[in-house]
């Protein structure tokens, strides 16, 4: 029910981001979504891509601090308020969201979020029959 996201530690200085992107390019990995959580000194670059496990191995080979995190990716209706409606379900279930971001996949809005309460999140998704995407959806994408 979750997808693999790459989380990459990058220092705030020129040349660090391109090192990551070059390594992915070299490995022929298709990026699907990226977002960065930045601080004054470093950033955590989060990447949704095709073949995340292979991407992770390639990045490690390039000496990059990378980890795989499991995140949920729900499909949203393309209309105002759909994100609010979905998040409200988790909120009512008492689930804290660590971070969220969105991207478009084949014209559909995808909401990515991470929570430490994975079991309850899965239950909420099942009970409400929320459409989620799986890793295969990302691999086929290219």
């Amino acid at each position: 029910m979750t997808i693999h996201q790459l989380s990459i530690f990058i220092e705030n200085r020129s040349g660090t981001l391109i090192k990551v992107l070059d390594a992915l390019k070299e490995a022929n990995i298709q990026l699907i979504a990226t977002t960065i959580a930045d601080t004054a000194e470093y950033g955590i670059l989060r990447i949704v891509c095709a073949e995340p496990m292979r991407a992770c191995e390639e990045l490690k080979k390039a000496g990059i601090a990378v980890a795989i995190s499991d995140v949920f990716a729900l499909q949203l209706d393309n209309k105002p308020g759909s994100a609010a409606d979905v998040i409200k379900l988790f909120s009512l279930a008492g689930i804290s969201i660590t971070y969220i971001y969105t991207f478009l996949l084949r014209g559909k809005g995808i909401l990515v979020f991470r929570t430490d309460n994975t079991d309850l999140a899965k239950k909420t998704i099942e009970e409400n029959q929320l459409p989620y995407i799986a890793e295969a959806d990302l691999t086929d994408w290219a």
Binding site: I44, R46, V66, A67
Partner: peptide, 17 residues
Amino acid sequence: LRQEVFTSTFDTPAAVD
């Protein structure tokens, strides 16, 4: 940072901080 210990818990600045 040691690459091996950079695990999934490190995907937020709060954890790194």
